[in-house]
């Protein structure tokens, strides 16, 4: 399995024909490939099985993925977003499904409950969790992602529209703060923000989702 960045905005995956080099990627993210490569719809559960499919249908946290396998190299990119590569060694990655670009074989995805107020932020009440050993590529819109540390005693508050994902043992909660409305200066809706506590890293993107 070989992953590299062709440019800061292009992920290149070299497939050697083995089952271990196969990846699951976001539908429509392939921009070019060479070699003998097959693209197969990963199923309505994004490859997570029937239970995942059911949960996604139920929760609206959809994860449209294609299984990419074969021999050759494939270039992935989404809307000129910057690619963030992460290695997972048993940690839990929570990510917005629309920020997920590519997952290596052997990682499991699931839909997890992320808090009651999620509905108001337009992200649904659920988020996608990725577990196992392997590599993940996330997409950060508007420029390179920013990694922010969360440690006990130093909680972190981020704009839900800029939130990409969180790595490690972090708990997520929603905060309503009237003063945030003025700060964000965005949308006429409720001014919600995401609060993280625990130990880990939170990734945000420079461009807010609309």
């Amino acid at each position: 399995m070989s992953w590299r960045l062709g440019t800061p905005r292009v992920l290149v995956v070299d497939l050697d024909g083995s089952a271990a080099s196969a990846v699951r990627a976001r539908t429509g993210s392939m921009v070019a490939y060479e070699g003998e490569v097959t693209f197969k719809h990963a199923g309505s559960g994004g490859g997570g099985g029937l239970r995942a499919a059911f949960k996604q249908r139920l929760t609206g946290e959809s994860l449209p993925l294609v299984e990419v396998s074969g021999r050759g190299s494939v270039h992935f990119a989404v809307d000129a977003g910057n690619v963030l590569l992460l290695d997972l060694a048993g940690q839990v990655l929570k990510a917005e499904s629309e920020s997920l670009l590519c997952l290596s074989e052997g990682l499991r995805t699931d839909v997890v409950f992320s808090g009651l107020q999620g509905a108001s932020s337009g992200q649904g009440l659920f988020t996608t969790s990725v577990t196992g050993h392997g590599r993940v590529a996330l997409i950060s819109m508007g420029g390179p992602p920013i990694a922010l540390r969360v440690a006990p005693g130093t909680p972190l508050v981020v704009d839900p529209d800029a939130y990409v994902g969180a790595l490690g043992d972090v708990r997520q909660s929603f905060v309503t703060d009237v003063s945030w409305r003025n700060l964000l200066g965005e949308s006429s809706g409720e001014a919600f923000s995401l609060r993280f506590e625990g130990q880990g890293t939170v990734f945000i993107q420079p461009e807010e989702r609309r």
């Binding site: 392939m30 921009v31 719809h41």
Partner: peptide
């Protein structure tokens, strides 16, 4: 159909052969 395009777009691909270089952008926009 699964790999390309956004939603209902026609499932087409460009197959490039010969001698040269093709330039591709990091977006489907």
């Amino acid at each position: 159909r699964d790999a390309v395009g956004r939603g209902s777009g026609e499932a087409v691909q460009l197959r490039v052969s010969g001698e040269g270089t093709v330039h591709v952008q990091a977006s489907e926009e």
